[in-house]
Amino acid sequence: MDSELIRVIAFLVGIIAFAALNAAYLVWLERKGAAHIQRRIGPKEVGPFGLLQPMVDGIKLMTKQILIPDGVDPVLFRLAPILAMVPAIMSFVTIPFSETLVARNINVGLLMIFAFASVNVLALLLGGWASNNKYAVISAARAVSQNIAYEIPMLITVITMVMITGTLNLNEIVAQQPNISQWYIFRFSASPLMPVAFLIFFICSLAETNRAPFDLGEAESELVAGFHTEYSSMGFGLFFMGEYANIVIGCSLAVVLFLGGWQDPFGLYPGVWWFLLKLYLLIFTVIWIRWTFPRTQFYGLLNLSWKILIPVSMFNLLLTAGFLKVF
């Protein structure tokens, strides 16, 4: 067997395992984090610190019956959860975990991730539409308009980044940030608004992944469970895993673009550990945010996007263009 085939298989298994394990253990982290923020203990019965809880939950989900309610669109109803999970896993292909630990070092990696990220919306739309449930349809409509609103400032910010980096290759972007003063979040020579750009990117990725405080699609006090109201068993499980995988992708991108990816802040020991540390810190922030704030109202979310994020990111784009031209 040639080494290329082994490499492909190894990365395929690795990525799926990483995505699935992350989804499982982020649920654990979320539950633990939420519990301690709320001054509870959280899962603690299954295994030490409840560490086996995600496994047990997974087994439970898998053994449940997949219920297909009457009146649903049988094909789309089954397809939607898969569509939620597959693009998320695909996006992992170009994420550089370290200088060498990357499945495919594509020179349009950034573009590819955004292409796949957009498919996620389709999954929510299909899931909500096919469920033949009023809550699900409302939720799907909300998710779609939310994503359209948030794709714009996010992409403007990314365009700004691409103007500065001059490449779409994620590994090269990381290579340009060898130490903390060179991280793009602090690269004031490119634009004085870089921390703001990071913030915009982060807020948009929260909204893109339907995370609180932008989880309008799953607003349980209004829409019960939103687009996955009718899903049971692994249908629900895949939506759930897809959501967490998307969070990992969003945070990975933020780490790669702004926080120096696998680079050491002091330029000493770059490697995958730095990437993971930064990634999980960001993910913890996502969890922290969820358990602090109430949910935004729908027009509040759109107002934020159209009135604040888009003008600011446009301004940043112009400013960066000016800086690049002048300096």
Binding site: Q38, S221, W291, F293, P294, R295
Partner: peptide, 16 residues
Amino acid sequence: YLLDLGGFTPLLYAFD
């Protein structure tokens, strides 16, 4: 009420 509005944590503080 905060639960209605999607904020979970204040409920636990209030219940404490």
